[in-house]
Protein backbone atom coordinates (compact mmCIF):
# COMPACT_ATOMS: atom_id res chain seq x y z
CA UNK A 1 0.00 0.00 0.00
CA UNK A 2 2.78 2.35 0.92
CA UNK A 3 4.32 1.87 -2.50
CA UNK A 4 1.22 2.94 -4.40
CA UNK A 5 0.99 6.10 -2.35
CA UNK A 6 4.56 7.05 -3.00
CA UNK A 7 4.73 6.69 -6.77
CA UNK A 8 3.17 10.10 -7.46
CA UNK A 9 5.26 12.08 -4.99
CA UNK A 10 7.28 15.10 -6.18
CA UNK A 11 10.63 13.28 -5.76
CA UNK A 12 9.52 10.44 -8.01
CA UNK A 13 8.48 12.82 -10.81
CA UNK A 14 11.72 14.77 -10.58
CA UNK A 15 13.69 11.55 -10.85
CA UNK A 16 11.77 10.46 -13.94
CA UNK A 17 12.79 13.67 -15.70
CA UNK A 18 16.40 13.26 -14.63
CA UNK A 19 16.55 9.65 -15.77
CA UNK A 20 15.19 10.64 -19.18
CA UNK A 21 17.86 13.33 -19.57
CA UNK A 22 20.59 10.85 -18.59
CA UNK A 23 19.33 8.43 -21.19
CA UNK A 24 19.39 11.10 -23.94
CA UNK A 25 22.81 12.40 -22.91
CA UNK A 26 24.21 8.87 -23.13
CA UNK A 27 22.79 8.42 -26.60
CA UNK A 28 24.32 11.69 -27.85
CA UNK A 29 27.71 10.78 -26.41
CA UNK A 30 27.61 7.49 -28.27
CA UNK A 31 26.63 9.29 -31.46
CA UNK A 32 29.52 11.69 -30.89
CA UNK A 33 31.95 8.79 -31.16
CA UNK A 34 30.83 8.05 -34.69
CA UNK A 35 30.80 11.66 -35.90
CA UNK A 36 34.40 11.78 -37.26
CA UNK A 37 33.71 8.72 -39.38
CA UNK A 38 30.38 10.11 -40.54
CA UNK A 39 32.10 13.36 -41.50
CA UNK A 40 34.71 11.52 -43.55
CA UNK A 41 32.06 9.45 -45.29
CA UNK A 42 30.21 12.67 -46.14
CA UNK A 43 33.30 14.43 -47.47
CA UNK A 44 34.93 11.65 -49.43
CA UNK A 45 31.97 9.54 -50.47
CA UNK A 46 28.63 11.28 -50.61
CA UNK A 47 29.76 14.65 -51.95
CA UNK A 48 32.10 13.40 -54.73
CA UNK A 49 29.62 10.74 -55.82
CA UNK A 50 26.90 13.32 -55.99
CA UNK A 51 29.16 15.61 -57.96
CA UNK A 52 30.08 12.77 -60.36
CA UNK A 53 26.40 12.09 -60.83
CA UNK A 54 25.85 15.75 -61.62
CA UNK A 55 28.64 16.19 -64.16
CA UNK A 56 27.72 12.99 -65.95
CA UNK A 57 24.67 14.91 -67.12
CA UNK A 58 26.67 17.92 -68.28
CA UNK A 59 27.44 17.97 -72.02
CA UNK A 60 30.50 19.35 -73.80
CA UNK A 61 28.87 22.77 -74.09
CA UNK A 62 28.23 22.94 -70.36
CA UNK A 63 24.45 22.48 -70.38
CA UNK A 64 22.29 19.57 -69.26
CA UNK A 65 22.62 16.73 -71.69
CA UNK A 66 22.33 12.97 -71.97
CA UNK A 67 25.17 12.81 -74.50
CA UNK A 68 27.56 10.98 -72.15
CA UNK A 69 25.05 8.18 -71.75
CA UNK A 70 24.00 8.24 -75.38
CA UNK A 71 27.63 7.78 -76.42
CA UNK A 72 27.86 4.66 -74.32
CA UNK A 73 24.91 3.15 -76.16
CA UNK A 74 26.13 4.24 -79.61
CA UNK A 75 29.68 2.95 -79.48
CA UNK A 76 30.15 -0.78 -79.65
CA UNK A 77 33.48 -0.45 -77.78
CA UNK A 78 31.69 0.51 -74.55
CA UNK A 79 29.47 -2.54 -74.60
CA UNK A 80 32.59 -4.62 -75.19
CA UNK A 81 34.35 -3.02 -72.23
CA UNK A 82 31.43 -3.75 -69.91
CA UNK A 83 31.27 -7.26 -71.29
CA UNK A 84 35.01 -7.79 -70.65
CA UNK A 85 34.70 -6.35 -67.16
CA UNK A 86 31.92 -8.74 -66.20
CA UNK A 87 33.70 -11.62 -67.91
CA UNK A 88 36.98 -11.01 -66.09
CA UNK A 89 35.17 -10.52 -62.78
CA UNK A 90 33.19 -13.71 -63.28
CA UNK A 91 36.24 -15.80 -64.22
CA UNK A 92 38.28 -14.36 -61.35
CA UNK A 93 35.47 -15.16 -58.92
CA UNK A 94 35.18 -18.67 -60.32
CA UNK A 95 38.91 -19.31 -60.01
CA UNK A 96 38.91 -17.87 -56.48
CA UNK A 97 36.16 -20.33 -55.53
CA UNK A 98 38.04 -23.25 -57.09
CA UNK A 99 41.24 -22.38 -55.23
CA UNK A 100 39.81 -20.78 -52.08
CA UNK A 101 37.08 -23.22 -51.08
CA UNK A 102 39.35 -26.26 -50.71
CA UNK A 103 41.92 -24.15 -48.87
CA UNK A 104 39.29 -22.78 -46.49
CA UNK A 105 38.04 -26.34 -45.98
CA UNK A 106 41.55 -27.54 -45.20
CA UNK A 107 42.02 -24.71 -42.70
CA UNK A 108 38.67 -25.33 -41.06
CA UNK A 109 39.68 -28.92 -40.34
CA UNK A 110 42.95 -27.91 -38.66
CA UNK A 111 43.23 -27.33 -34.92
CA UNK A 112 42.53 -23.66 -34.18
CA UNK A 113 46.19 -22.95 -33.43
CA UNK A 114 47.39 -24.13 -36.84
CA UNK A 115 44.40 -22.63 -38.59
CA UNK A 116 45.25 -19.22 -37.13
CA UNK A 117 48.78 -19.56 -38.47
CA UNK A 118 47.35 -20.34 -41.90
CA UNK A 119 45.05 -17.36 -41.57
CA UNK A 120 48.02 -15.10 -40.94
CA UNK A 121 49.69 -16.35 -44.11
CA UNK A 122 46.48 -15.78 -46.03
CA UNK A 123 46.41 -12.21 -44.71
CA UNK A 124 50.15 -11.67 -45.18
CA UNK A 125 49.74 -10.12 -48.66
CA UNK A 126 47.68 -7.32 -47.09
CA UNK A 127 50.80 -6.14 -45.33
CA UNK A 128 52.50 -5.22 -48.58
CA UNK A 129 51.36 -2.66 -51.07
CA UNK A 130 49.07 -3.75 -53.86
CA UNK A 131 51.45 -2.16 -56.34
CA UNK A 132 54.42 -4.14 -55.05
CA UNK A 133 52.52 -7.40 -55.26
CA UNK A 134 51.38 -6.62 -58.77
CA UNK A 135 54.88 -5.75 -59.99
CA UNK A 136 56.18 -8.89 -58.30
CA UNK A 137 53.88 -10.86 -60.59
CA UNK A 138 55.31 -8.95 -63.53
CA UNK A 139 58.80 -10.02 -62.48
CA UNK A 140 57.66 -13.63 -62.26
CA UNK A 141 55.54 -13.82 -65.38
CA UNK A 142 57.23 -11.71 -68.06
CA UNK A 143 59.04 -13.14 -71.12
CA UNK A 144 62.39 -13.21 -69.34
CA UNK A 145 60.72 -13.65 -65.97
CA UNK A 146 61.57 -16.25 -63.36
CA UNK A 147 58.86 -18.70 -64.39
CA UNK A 148 59.78 -18.68 -68.06
CA UNK A 149 63.49 -18.95 -67.29
CA UNK A 150 63.01 -21.87 -64.94
CA UNK A 151 60.52 -23.59 -67.21
CA UNK A 152 62.79 -23.34 -70.22
CA UNK A 153 65.86 -24.11 -68.12
CA UNK A 154 64.31 -27.36 -67.00
CA UNK A 155 63.15 -28.03 -70.55
CA UNK A 156 59.47 -27.97 -69.74
CA UNK A 157 58.74 -25.68 -72.67
CA UNK A 158 60.77 -24.28 -75.62
CA UNK A 159 59.38 -20.82 -76.33
CA UNK A 160 58.66 -18.30 -73.55
CA UNK A 161 55.00 -18.61 -72.52
CA UNK A 162 52.85 -15.50 -72.85
CA UNK A 163 51.94 -15.24 -69.20
CA UNK A 164 51.52 -11.51 -68.86
CA UNK A 165 50.32 -8.46 -70.81
CA UNK A 166 47.23 -10.46 -71.66
CA UNK A 167 44.21 -12.14 -70.12
CA UNK A 168 46.39 -14.79 -68.42
CA UNK A 169 48.41 -12.28 -66.46
CA UNK A 170 45.35 -10.23 -65.58
CA UNK A 171 43.56 -13.26 -64.19
CA UNK A 172 46.60 -14.61 -62.32
CA UNK A 173 47.15 -11.28 -60.62
CA UNK A 174 43.52 -10.61 -59.85
CA UNK A 175 42.91 -14.08 -58.43
CA UNK A 176 45.93 -13.71 -56.19
CA UNK A 177 44.84 -10.33 -54.88
CA UNK A 178 41.21 -11.36 -54.42
CA UNK A 179 41.74 -14.77 -52.83
CA UNK A 180 41.79 -13.58 -49.18
CA UNK A 181 38.44 -11.84 -49.66
CA UNK A 182 36.93 -15.19 -50.59
CA UNK A 183 38.77 -17.31 -48.05
CA UNK A 184 37.96 -15.23 -44.97
CA UNK A 185 34.15 -15.38 -45.02
CA UNK A 186 34.18 -18.96 -46.33
CA UNK A 187 36.52 -20.05 -43.57
CA UNK A 188 34.42 -18.18 -41.00
CA UNK A 189 31.27 -19.96 -42.12
CA UNK A 190 33.03 -23.31 -42.09
CA UNK A 191 34.41 -22.78 -38.58
CA UNK A 192 30.92 -22.01 -37.36
CA UNK A 193 29.66 -25.41 -38.53
CA UNK A 194 29.28 -27.58 -35.46
CA UNK A 195 31.35 -30.75 -35.81
CA UNK A 196 28.45 -32.65 -34.31
CA UNK A 197 26.47 -32.10 -37.53
CA UNK A 198 28.99 -34.21 -39.42
CA UNK A 199 29.09 -36.76 -36.63
CA UNK A 200 25.30 -36.93 -36.72
CA UNK A 201 25.38 -37.39 -40.49
CA UNK A 202 27.91 -40.22 -40.16
CA UNK A 203 25.93 -41.81 -37.37
CA UNK A 204 22.81 -41.73 -39.52
CA UNK A 205 24.64 -43.58 -42.27
CA UNK A 206 26.29 -40.94 -44.46
CA UNK A 207 29.73 -41.75 -45.86
CA UNK A 208 32.24 -38.90 -45.46
CA UNK A 209 31.66 -37.79 -49.06
CA UNK A 210 27.90 -37.95 -48.64
CA UNK A 211 28.08 -36.03 -45.38
CA UNK A 212 30.13 -33.34 -47.11
CA UNK A 213 27.67 -32.88 -49.97
CA UNK A 214 24.51 -33.06 -47.90
CA UNK A 215 25.57 -31.26 -44.74
CA UNK A 216 28.89 -29.43 -44.88
CA UNK A 217 28.55 -27.86 -48.32
CA UNK A 218 25.04 -26.49 -47.81
CA UNK A 219 26.01 -25.06 -44.44
CA UNK A 220 29.15 -23.40 -45.83
CA UNK A 221 27.57 -21.92 -48.98
CA UNK A 222 26.30 -18.74 -47.30
CA UNK A 223 29.91 -17.87 -46.43
CA UNK A 224 31.11 -18.90 -49.88
CA UNK A 225 28.41 -16.77 -51.57
CA UNK A 226 29.30 -13.80 -49.41
CA UNK A 227 32.98 -14.17 -50.27
CA UNK A 228 32.28 -14.68 -53.97
CA UNK A 229 30.03 -11.63 -54.04
CA UNK A 230 32.71 -9.54 -52.36
CA UNK A 231 35.31 -10.69 -54.90
CA UNK A 232 32.99 -10.11 -57.83
CA UNK A 233 32.11 -6.58 -56.77
CA UNK A 234 35.70 -5.66 -56.00
CA UNK A 235 36.70 -7.02 -59.43
CA UNK A 236 34.12 -4.84 -61.22
CA UNK A 237 35.97 -1.69 -60.21
CA UNK A 238 39.51 -3.10 -60.02
CA UNK A 239 42.14 -0.94 -61.73
CA UNK A 240 45.78 -1.29 -60.62
CA UNK A 241 46.43 -4.99 -61.15
CA UNK A 242 44.56 -5.49 -64.42
CA UNK A 243 46.08 -2.27 -65.77
CA UNK A 244 49.64 -3.35 -65.08
CA UNK A 245 49.39 -7.07 -65.85
CA UNK A 246 46.97 -6.67 -68.74
CA UNK A 247 48.99 -3.78 -70.10
CA UNK A 248 46.18 -2.33 -72.20
CA UNK A 249 45.23 -5.61 -73.86
CA UNK A 250 42.39 -6.27 -71.42
CA UNK A 251 40.37 -3.08 -71.07
CA UNK A 252 38.04 -2.84 -68.10
CA UNK A 253 35.60 -0.08 -67.20
CA UNK A 254 37.99 1.36 -64.64
CA UNK A 255 40.71 1.78 -67.27
CA UNK A 256 38.31 3.43 -69.68
CA UNK A 257 37.43 5.90 -66.94
CA UNK A 258 41.09 6.71 -66.44
CA UNK A 259 41.77 7.14 -70.14
CA UNK A 260 38.68 9.33 -70.52
CA UNK A 261 40.13 11.66 -67.94
CA UNK A 262 43.85 11.47 -68.67
CA UNK A 263 43.75 11.13 -72.45
CA UNK A 264 40.60 12.96 -73.43
CA UNK A 265 40.06 15.12 -70.33
CA UNK A 266 36.38 14.30 -70.63
CA UNK A 267 35.06 14.33 -67.08
CA UNK A 268 31.49 13.95 -68.20
CA UNK A 269 32.16 10.71 -70.06
CA UNK A 270 34.24 9.36 -67.19
CA UNK A 271 31.56 10.25 -64.68
CA UNK A 272 28.85 8.62 -66.74
CA UNK A 273 30.90 5.43 -66.87
CA UNK A 274 31.36 5.60 -63.13
CA UNK A 275 27.66 6.08 -62.57
CA UNK A 276 26.73 3.17 -64.83
CA UNK A 277 29.28 0.93 -63.10
CA UNK A 278 27.93 2.00 -59.71
CA UNK A 279 24.36 1.28 -60.75
CA UNK A 280 25.34 -2.12 -62.16
CA UNK A 281 27.20 -2.96 -58.95
CA UNK A 282 24.21 -1.98 -56.85
CA UNK A 283 22.02 -4.12 -59.07
CA UNK A 284 24.32 -7.11 -58.53
CA UNK A 285 24.20 -6.47 -54.79
CA UNK A 286 20.44 -6.17 -54.85
CA UNK A 287 20.00 -9.43 -56.73
CA UNK A 288 22.53 -11.14 -54.47
CA UNK A 289 20.89 -9.82 -51.31
CA UNK A 290 17.86 -11.91 -52.15
CA UNK A 291 20.01 -15.04 -51.78
CA UNK A 292 22.68 -14.08 -49.25
CA UNK A 293 22.61 -12.20 -45.99
CA UNK A 294 25.00 -9.37 -46.86
CA UNK A 295 26.33 -8.94 -43.33
CA UNK A 296 28.26 -12.17 -43.87
CA UNK A 297 30.57 -10.31 -46.24
CA UNK A 298 31.98 -8.42 -43.31
CA UNK A 299 32.15 -11.47 -41.10
CA UNK A 300 29.22 -10.39 -38.97
CA UNK A 301 26.28 -12.68 -38.36
CA UNK A 302 26.30 -16.32 -39.13
Amino acid sequence: MAVTQMNTGPDIDANAGGLRTDEQRERWRLFGLSSPALLIVMVILVIPTGWLFYISFVGANGSFSMENYARMLERKSYARIFQTTFQVSLITTGLCILIGYPLAYFMSQLPVKWANLCLVTVLLPFWTSLLVRTYAWLVLLQRQGLINEWGMGMGLWEEPLKLVHNMNGTLIGMVHIMLPFLILPTYGAMRAIDRDYLKAAANLGASPARAFWTVFLPLSTPGLFAGALMVFILCLGFFVTPAILGCGTVILVSMQIVSNIELFVNWGAASALGVVLLVLTLMVLWVASRFVRLEQMTGGGH
Binding site: D194, D196, Y197, K199, A200, A201, A202, N203, L204, G205, A206, S207, P208, R210, A211, V215, P218, L219
Partner: peptide
Protein backbone atom coordinates in the same frame (compact mmCIF):
# COMPACT_ATOMS: atom_id res chain seq x y z
CA UNK B 1 33.93 -50.20 -38.59
CA UNK B 2 33.54 -46.53 -39.51
CA UNK B 3 30.59 -44.79 -37.82
CA UNK B 4 28.43 -44.64 -40.93
CA UNK B 5 28.40 -48.43 -41.23
CA UNK B 6 27.52 -49.17 -37.61
CA UNK B 7 23.79 -48.62 -37.92
CA UNK B 8 23.29 -47.35 -34.39
CA UNK B 9 20.98 -44.48 -33.52
CA UNK B 10 22.42 -41.63 -31.51
CA UNK B 11 20.98 -38.62 -29.75
CA UNK B 12 23.54 -35.88 -29.28
CA UNK B 13 23.81 -33.58 -26.31
CA UNK B 14 23.09 -30.49 -28.42
CA UNK B 15 20.72 -32.50 -30.67
CA UNK B 16 22.84 -31.79 -33.81
CA UNK B 17 19.75 -31.23 -35.93
CA UNK B 18 20.69 -30.02 -39.41
CA UNK B 19 19.68 -26.35 -39.49
CA UNK B 20 19.30 -26.29 -43.29
Amino acid sequence: KPPHLRNVGMVFQNYALFPH
